[in-house]
Computed example of a mutant assay.
Amino acid sequence: MKRIFITGIGTGVGKTLAAACVTEALKAHYWKPVQAGLDEGTDTETVKSLVSNAFSVCHPEAYRLREPASPHLAARMEGITIDPAEIVLQADAIQPPEEDYLVIEGAGGLLVPLNEDVFTIDLIRALRAQVIIVAQNYLGSINHSLLTARVLQHSHIPVLGWIFSGAEHTNEADIVRWSELPLLGHIPTASKIDAAFVRHQALRLVGSLGEALDQNMSRYSNPPLSRQLP
């Protein structure tokens, strides 16, 4: 079980920065299978600029869609269909050596549709990945956070824990308590986001990530990949 899927409670909550910090902390490989929106640069380019260890590799996307929209809609506008089975095949092809991790960044949250029938949570299950939930405080974030956690738990998908981003808030402790999922760390607001900042945040995450990975290792027992997609 070497795949870690970074999902968010919504859009714009800090997934890409969290993915960069986790990638740096674990000296992992990074992959964003579906990139929707190209005009302002890609998340892969961002992570590549922020990760500075000598071991991480950022792999090219399976789908690059120009429109910054839900993947199923952006793909429809370009006359293509996202095939989750192809994403799984590519993941198998780029999977780093057994001792390494592959950090996979999703688009938006769990119920973002990839095509007319398959949602992000279906892809997570097919990839046999553990999940890190990225959350940020805003009006309604408690509901979004707990809904995300509950859906993953009811789907029997292993969750490593929470990474919160932005300004700290007492909501974080409540979300951790109510969800019964561990706190991995908090990535604070910063005036400058660069490789040095990511290295510092990665060091703060190493211990909690290692502990969560050790605890989850024996709990993962999903059925074969071919049975996971609708």
Rank of each mutant, 00 (worst) to 15 (best):
D43L: 11
P113I: 01
G210N: 13
A74V: 00
R204L: 13
P113R: 11
H169M: 00
L123R: 07
M1L: 07
E24N: 05
I4D: 04
R125F: 03
A36W: 10
S208T: 15
L181P: 02
D92K: 15
R76Y: 14
S56P: 04
P97E: 15
P84C: 09
P60H: 08
N216W: 00
C21Q: 04
R125M: 05
I6L: 13
P33A: 08
T120M: 15
H186F: 12
T81D: 11
I175F: 05
H144Q: 06
R204T: 15
S52K: 11
L225Q: 12
F5Y: 15
T189R: 13
T11W: 07
E98N: 06
G12D: 14
R150Y: 00
S145W: 02
G10D: 15
Q90T: 09
G12W: 01
N143T: 02
L213M: 07
G109D: 03
L50S: 07
Q201C: 14
M77S: 13
I82R: 01
V198S: 02
T170F: 00
C21L: 13
L89P: 01
N137L: 00
F119W: 11
F164D: 02
S179Q: 06
V34H: 13
V159Q: 01
H186R: 09
H29G: 15
A149D: 02
M1I: 08
Q153C: 06
V198A: 10
I124Q: 11
D174L: 13
I187N: 02
G8L: 12
L26T: 02
E168V: 00
N216L: 09
